[in-house]
Amino acid sequence: MEEEYVGKLDVAVVNAFLSNIAAYYIGDFAKLNTGEVCEIVHINPRHVSRPIISR
């Protein structure tokens, strides 16, 4: 969504959406492609698909 919305959706709306939704995932757990489980500790609103995790 970060790259594909350019030219298709209102940039201000998409940025607001990504900034707000990112906060809801802090503290949640995710399973990595290696099978490890980690905790999401930070999400940069400009790079939602690359959260900072704690193993």
Rank of each mutant, 00 (worst) to 15 (best):
M1Q: 02
M1S: 13
M1I: 09
E2V: 08
E3F: 04
E3P: 09
E3H: 15
Y5G: 01
V6T: 14
V6Y: 15
V6Q: 14
V6I: 15
G7Y: 06
K8S: 11
K8R: 15
K8G: 08
L9T: 07
L9S: 13
L9Q: 14
D10P: 11
A12N: 13
A12G: 14
V14F: 10
V14L: 11
N15I: 06
F17C: 07
L18V: 10
L18H: 07
S19K: 13
I21M: 11
I21S: 03
I21Q: 07
A22K: 07
A22H: 04
A23H: 09
A23W: 11
A23K: 12
Y24P: 04
Y24G: 05
Y24D: 13
Y25E: 06
Y25N: 01
Y25L: 09
I26R: 05
I26C: 10
I26E: 04
D28G: 08
D28S: 13
D28Y: 14
D28C: 11
F29Q: 14
F29T: 15
A30G: 12
A30M: 14
A30P: 09
K31L: 11
K31A: 07
K31N: 10
K31Q: 08
K31R: 09
L32H: 05
L32K: 07
N33F: 12
T34R: 02
G35K: 02
E36G: 00
V37N: 07
V37G: 07
C38A: 09
C38V: 09
E39K: 12
E39V: 08
E39T: 11
I40A: 02
I40C: 06
I40R: 03
I40N: 05
I40F: 02
I40D: 02
H42P: 02
I43E: 00
N44I: 03
N44M: 02
N44G: 00
P45V: 00
P45Q: 04
P45I: 00
H47W: 03
H47S: 04
H47P: 03
V48I: 06
S49T: 03
S49W: 06
S49A: 03
P51E: 01
I52Q: 04
I53Y: 00
S54Q: 07
R55N: 01
